[in-house]
């Protein structure tokens, strides 16, 4: 500690002691050399505030870095590339609760393309997996060695170093299997809008059907949904299904890009 820092500390200690007790009860000691004010105030309380303003400013302006502590060791190497920025944005939307039915497929496709999620999403994924073993298993598969490293580096997060074990009888989190005839499913969905039976009550079933649809049928479904006649009863369902189909189409595109296309997407940013 430098001389000036020591004398500022001593001066500040004097001021604090007097201020806590009050100048009515404790006389204000004279300023140490170098800390005198330009003009003495008549009132000791004003004098104290004048001097405190100067010392406080000096202390704030003179903050020095602390000593550097021991650094963490690096995580084990992971040579997979990060998924594209578009795919990362889609994961953020899914995690926020938008069309959550697509989460399993996001993980499956991310693992299939040998990519990893962006590191800033890793804590959210791991925290979500703490109470959901099926989610934890698939999430850790794409996160890779960073998960165990983070659990070790930040023990207060309460993350276990190893993936959870699925309890007997629990369903694993798997992407849904496409139906035998996706074209028929598209026609069936379009029909429910024509005969106005696509109310909100019927939507849950249709959502899982859209999530399972064979990808090449998605453009046809989007076309049908855009062409569906307006009806106040079914509008909410239509918008929801359209959003789901479009998000799924974009997600598949952004997770199956070739390396070249990926670079373009990143620089577009």
């Amino acid at each position: 500690m430098t001389d000036i820092a020591t004398s500022a500390g001593a001066e500040w200690a004097q001021l604090i002691t007097t201020a806590v007790l009050g100048t009515d009860r404790r006389p204000l000691p004279r300023a140490a050399a170098g800390w005198e004010t330009v003009a003495d105030a008549e009132d000791p309380a004003t004098e104290l505030l004048n001097r405190a303003a100067a010392v406080a400013t000096a202390r704030r302006a003179g903050v020095q870095p602390d000593e550097a502590p021991l650094l963490l060791g690096p995580p084990p190497a992971d040579d997979r590339k990060m998924c594209s920025a578009d795919a990362a944005n889609q994961l953020v939307r899914l995690l926020r609760g938008e069309h959550e039915v697509l989460l399993a497929e996001w993980f499956a496709r991310c693992a299939g393309s040998c990519r990893r999620p962006p590191p800033q999403l890793v804590p959210t994924l791991l925290l979500r997996g703490r109470r959901n073993p099926a989610f934890d298993i698939v999430a850790r598969a794409v996160i890779g060695p960073l998960a165990a490293w983070l659990a070790d580096a930040m023990p207060d997060l309460g993350i276990k170093p190893n993936p959870a074990v699925l309890p007997a009888g629990a369903d694993p989190l798997l992407a849904p299997k496409p139906p035998p005839d996706s074209g028929a499913v598209v026609t069936a969905i379009a029909d429910t809008f024509l005969d106005r039976t696509a109310t909100w009550a019927a939507a849950a079933q249709m959502r899982s059907a859209v999530a399972a649809l064979e990808p090449r049928w998605l453009p046809a479904l989007i076309l049908e949904l855009n062409r569906a006649p307006f009806n106040a009863m079914t509008e909410r369902t239509r918008v929801d299904l359209l959003g789901l189909a479009q998000l799924r189409r974009d997600m598949i595109a952004s997770l199956t890009q070739t390396a070249g296309a990926d670079v373009v997407a990143l620089s577009r940013g």
């Binding site: 590191p119 890793v122 804590p123 960073l146």
Partner: peptide
């Protein structure tokens, strides 16, 4: 509140 995110992005670099 987002120390964990910063730690993951940095990964000790």
């Amino acid at each position: 509140t987002r120390v964990a995110e910063l730690v993951c992005v940095s990964a000790a670099e």
